[in-house]
Design a protein around this nucleic acid. Structure first.
Lengths: 165, 165
DNA sequence: GCAAGAAATGTAATGTTATTACATTACCTG
DNA sequence: CAGGTAATGTAATAACATTACATTTCTTGC
């Protein structure tokens, strides 16, 4: 089941070719400097997420990987995706049971995902204040934060507009 | 698979018997005043979540419902749970593929869930500032928020303590 | 270089979560 | 009490995810 072909970098237009290249390059740098092994499957998985530029289900990614000559079984996709998520190169969007490439890899980030309930497109937004609010709330109950996942459901600008018409 | 038997109302001690009764009573009021139909399955589902006072998987809830004489098929649980979530009487914790009764039904709320990665217990915290930060970020990209889901993973006070020892 | 251990991959099987479809029953409402 | 709507029961299946284990590739110390 395809989720959406819509832009995921906020909801702005952008030079997609360029954005893919940039992120991939950043990923490479991180891999070599950080001792990560960006193996062929992993690299290809990241490329697929970047090319599609949207949230993709694991099985959808798997199909693509299989076509490219990699294994056909679920663990192939799940392992590669897990690696990317663990190393900050991708995110898991739980509401959609899907994964999306991180648009700002490397830098310490506090992502929030805005998911359109009409077209299922996803925007990744870096927002420090959300993270700060979460940290403050955590401190209030003595909770030690390791990861925060913020997923907001609503309507993206395009769909919001269409609704009023 | 049971998720946790740990308290979910922040991480404080509380009079459980009393808290269940209160929330159920509130749910009833909402149902009658709001025109909701809190049917036997739905009511029982809410009771189960309240009794256990933790995040429960749909199949786990289903087992209990079946024992109580309701249907044995997944839609029985999913429909009841969906109803409760739609009407603010329960929440879905996506990271755990689970559901938990809302501890503050009726009042307009902005819940954030704190999930302990060691014991899997869940705390529901009402925090306006998180919601405000989300709203602000949404406004920045022209996104219309309908629901925000904040799930924070880390260590609860009890487990955090244990770790240091 | 090469042996030993660690990490990654391939694959089969299975487990878990969730939905679709449709028949039936209960409940409003005129 | 007839007709429509909402809720329920049930079967089947879809979608998502993990376990287990064999095999290969990479790394590292000698």
């Amino acid at each position: 089941m395809a989720i959406s072909a819509q832009s995921a970098k906020a909801f702005e237009d952008h030079n997609h070719q360029r954005c893919c290249g940039e992120v991939l390059e950043q990923a490479h740098k991180l891999a070599t400097s950080g001792g990560l092994r960006l193996t062929p499957v992993r690299r290809r998985t990241l490329e697929i997420l970047l090319e599609e530029h949207r949230a993709m289900g694991a099985y959808e990614v798997l199909e693509r990987l299989a076509k490219d000559g990699f294994g056909k079984q679920p663990p192939v996709a799940y392992r590669a995706l897990e690696f990317l998520v663990e190393n900050g190169l991708a995110h898991r969007i739980r509401r959609l049971n899907a994964f999306a490439a991180c648009m700002t890899p490397g830098q310490p980030h506090a992502p929030a995902f805005f998911i359109c309930e009409l077209c299922n497109c996803v925007a990744e937004v870096q927002d420090v204040s959300v993270r700060q609010a979460v940290e403050a709330a955590a401190a209030g109950i003595g909770f030690g934060v390791s990861r925060a996942n913020v997923e907001v459901v609503g309507t993206c600008p395009a769909c919001h507009k269409g609704r009023d018409q």
